[in-house]
Amino acid sequence: MKPPPFSYHRPASLDEAFALLGSLENAKVLAGGQSLMPMMNYRYVMPDHVVDLNHCPGLSGVGVEDQTLIIGAMTRQCDLAANDLVARHAPLLVDALHWVGHVQTRNRGTIGGSLSHLDPAAELPAVIAAYDATVTVGNETALRDVSIHEWAAGYMMPAIDENEIAISINIPLSVELDGHAHSFFEIARRHGDFAQAGAGVVLQTVDDRVTDLRIALAGVDIAPVRLRQAEEFAIGKSLTEDVIDEIALFAKAVPGIADVHADESYRQRLAVVVVRRALTQAAGPGP
């Protein structure tokens, strides 16, 4: 299993990368390579051109600007997991990263790569959906922001053009979410494998009542799903065991995808379980 022949391009700037993608036919962007490379080895993907972004400055790193946590698309997963700003403002990302692949893949894999590959089971897009983030994408002529809720155009297909590159992930920060509780839980056949169902929870309570709840599912539908009805239902309630059970049951309404490991109804049952466990953990006594 070797990649098929292709031409290799190593842009030294973002403008150069834009120009390459604007002019080359059947080109693929190489970020961390942890999804593209297996797909090329399997020859599911046979690009004529590979544009390696690993030498493009300015695409990685984390910062806060205008009440927004800005994460460069080429920031590697291992660096995100160790980043203080991420731990402070978007701790659900850190929770989820423990479930993403293995140390060897996190050392190379990038957040922008996960988003652009958009595997249904990927944890990071679900977390980004929980935080209502936008993704800045660009090409030769313009940059634009895409809401994460409009990011998926279909199965493993982000709503970006072939000549566009994901530049950054922008997570809005609000005072109301300061110090929020958070938890990610998933069920996979073995740790680090593709999740059959996973749930990320962002929770804020005041005087034991829910003031803000976001629940995002990974691995259940073809793209991340937010359980809006469940989130609304929870507002103002105290998270007793019964209430958590009621909230988790909303997950059953999400259409589950079927594959060789889990059919639709099994996935829907798992979805309820992962929401219940993530929510129970988030609502529990702090660490």
């Binding site: 290799y8 390579g33 490379m37 080895n41 293995h102 893949t105």
Partner: peptide, 27 residues
């Protein structure tokens, strides 16, 4: 496995472990 699942080909790149089957030599 040659697709990043088995870990046998792990090497260290600048001290960090990586799958050498998912890395191009040119990288």
């Amino acid at each position: 496995c040659e697709h990043g699942v088995c870990g046998a080909c792990t090497v260290l790149l600048d001290g960090r472990s990586a799958r050498s089957c998912l890395t191009l030599a040119v990288q």
